[in-house]
Amino acid sequence: MSNLPEFVYIIRPIRSGFIEEVLPEEMEVMGQHFEYLKDLLEKGTLLLAGPCLDRTMGITVFKAESIEEARAIMENDPAVKLGVMSAELHEYRAALFAGQK
């Protein structure tokens, strides 16, 4: 799987008050989002993921066979699918990273 193209999707809250206070139903969806990402990690698809500490956005860097598969992975993220977050997909290539030789 290491030779597959890399992609990144950026998620941002849809509701304007999300940054100040996460509602219980949003927290539940974000828990599903976290489990979804853990599953991608276990499958070897996910490279890294995490939120900005100010909660304005999060990023997911992963590998997929094609842009179509990458879009499906992004759109099936519960945070996106259930309308808590908007998402945008980009092709990506890590150029510099720790441990690189």
Rank of each mutant, 00 (worst) to 15 (best):
M1D: 08
S2A: 14
N3F: 14
N3S: 13
N3Q: 13
L4M: 15
P5A: 11
E6P: 01
F7C: 09
F7N: 08
V8Y: 02
V8I: 11
V8T: 03
Y9T: 00
Y9W: 06
P13Y: 04
P13N: 07
R15W: 03
S16Y: 10
G17D: 14
F18R: 04
F18K: 07
F18Q: 06
I19G: 07
E20G: 07
E20R: 12
E21Y: 09
E21K: 14
V22P: 02
V22W: 06
V22I: 15
P24Q: 05
P24C: 02
M27E: 14
M27W: 12
V29M: 07
V29P: 00
M30R: 08
M30Q: 13
M30S: 06
Q32C: 08
H33E: 05
H33W: 05
H33D: 04
H33V: 01
H33K: 04
F34N: 14
F34R: 15
F34A: 14
F34S: 15
E35F: 10
E35H: 13
E35Q: 12
E35D: 15
E35N: 12
Y36M: 05
L37P: 00
L37V: 03
D39H: 13
D39A: 15
D39I: 11
D39V: 10
D39P: 06
L40D: 10
L40K: 13
L40F: 15
L41P: 01
L41D: 13
E42P: 06
E42V: 10
K43E: 13
K43V: 05
G44K: 13
T45L: 08
L46N: 02
L46Q: 05
L46I: 04
L48S: 11
L48N: 11
G50E: 04
D54P: 01
R55T: 03
R55L: 12
T56P: 04
T56S: 14
M57Y: 13
G58N: 00
I59F: 14
I59S: 14
T60V: 15
V61H: 02
V61K: 04
F62Q: 03
K63A: 02
K63F: 01
A64I: 01
A64C: 09
E65R: 10
E65Y: 05
I67V: 06
I67L: 12
E68L: 08
E69S: 10
A70P: 00
R71Q: 03
A72R: 14
I73M: 03
M74I: 00
E75N: 07
E75I: 01
E75Q: 09
E75T: 01
E75L: 08
E75V: 00
N76K: 05
D77P: 02
P78C: 06
A79K: 04
A79Y: 02
A79H: 06
V80L: 00
K81I: 00
L82F: 02
G83T: 00
G83P: 00
M85Y: 07
M85K: 03
S86F: 07
A87S: 09
A87Y: 02
E88I: 15
E88D: 13
E88S: 14
E88G: 14
H90E: 06
E91I: 11
R93K: 11
R93W: 09
R93Q: 10
A94Q: 10
A94L: 13
A95E: 08
L96N: 11
L96G: 08
L96M: 11
F97H: 14
F97P: 03
F97Y: 15
Q100N: 12
Q100C: 08
Q100L: 11
